[in-house]
Amino acid sequence: MSHALSPQLPTTTAQKDNDVSEQKGIQVATPEHTQGTAGNGQVLVEARGLQKSFGIRQILKNVDFQMNKGDITVIIGKSGSGKSTLLRALAGLTDPDEGEILVDGRTVFAEQKRTKEWTKVRSEVGMVFQTYTLWPHMNVLDNLVLAPRKVRGAAGSESRDRAEAALDEVGMKHHILSRPTQLSGGERQRVAIARALMMKPKLLLCDEITSALDPPVAAEVLDVLRRLKEEDGIAVALVTHDMAFASKAADRVVFFHDGEIAVNATPEAAFDDCDNQDLKKFVDAVRF
């Protein structure tokens, strides 16, 4: 794993972590396995030692996570394993109890609070949810320009131009004056992605955005994400149960199990060469 943002762990600590991981059957990522094929190997986001509990239940257990610029990382695992909590922590929607988060080299969370750096990079991190969260009384254009105008004070002509460009990227420009109620589920999800693109993010976090869609429509939405990566260099972290997309389009596959990252590998290593039994059981259950 690249250590562009953090110093190398002392040998004794790193070896101890590896020994514990091996005892649990966890695949330990080595330097040659961590760089994705789409980006240039530069780290965009890094989480160190994240812990998060809700009541007496610990959801994240000392999680270390890293993404490179321009890569797609697919995050899989059972419900409640910590996937969505990690995304929400990266997006600033929930704060960990412990740990650090860095975005593009800036520490945005440390010592149990958001730092001043977070205000500088928060617009570079977009998030798309399963439920679209579009305002039904507004047309598509108004849904898209609302945040840029309120957050950045963007002018009307500027925000409309950006909205048209964002909608064009997801194939929805012809629906710019439609209302969400006039759109199908897949179309609404594309609009939600376009809205996230309005802030020109470097990182797009997607939480189960295709789970409510029919397989052909879900495939179209996932194809949009792949094009955003290939054409615009946007890094995408996607929580999904779509193993076909994970195996074909992802640069990394991260498997959560019981609040920990049990596997972090290339799709080939995760699905073909991994001996982690929890991952095998999960993949078999999802596929069949």
Rank of each mutant, 00 (worst) to 15 (best):
Q42F: 04
G36V: 12
G49F: 01
A29R: 15
T11M: 09
V43Y: 01
K24R: 10
Q42A: 08
T37R: 15
T12N: 06
G25C: 04
V43R: 05
Q27D: 09
K24E: 07
S21T: 03
Q15S: 14
Q15W: 01
R48I: 10
G25I: 10
Q27G: 01
Q35L: 06
S53M: 02
T12D: 10
Q51Y: 13
N40T: 08
N40I: 01
L9M: 14
Q42W: 00
G25Y: 13
N40P: 02
D19P: 01
P10S: 14
L50N: 01
N18V: 09
P31I: 13
G41Q: 08
V20T: 08
A29N: 11
N18Q: 13
H33Q: 08
E32I: 04
E22R: 14
S53N: 03
G39C: 07
D19I: 12
Q35S: 15
T13N: 02
L9A: 15
S53L: 06
N40S: 08
L44A: 02
Q15T: 12
T12E: 15
L44D: 00
T13V: 15
V20A: 08
G39V: 06
V20P: 00
S21I: 00
K52S: 02
Q23V: 13
A29W: 11
D17H: 06
H33P: 03
N18W: 10
T30E: 13
E32N: 14
F54A: 05
G49L: 04
L50Y: 00
T13Y: 11
L44C: 00
V20M: 07
A38Q: 14
G49Q: 15
A47N: 01
P31E: 10
I26L: 11
Q15A: 07
Q15D: 13
L9I: 02
G36F: 11
Q27Y: 12
S53Y: 01
L44H: 02
D17W: 06
V45Y: 06
N18L: 10
L44V: 04
T12Y: 10
V45A: 14
G41R: 00
K52E: 00
R48E: 14
L50E: 03
D17A: 13
G49C: 07
S53T: 07
S53H: 04
D19R: 09
Q8R: 14
F54D: 09
R48K: 15
A29G: 08
S53F: 02
V20S: 05
I26H: 11
K24L: 04
N40D: 13
Q27A: 13
N18T: 05
S21V: 01
G36E: 02
L44W: 03
G36C: 03
G39P: 06
S53W: 05
V28S: 05
P10G: 08
V20G: 00
T11N: 03
K16F: 09
T30Y: 09
P31F: 05
L44I: 02
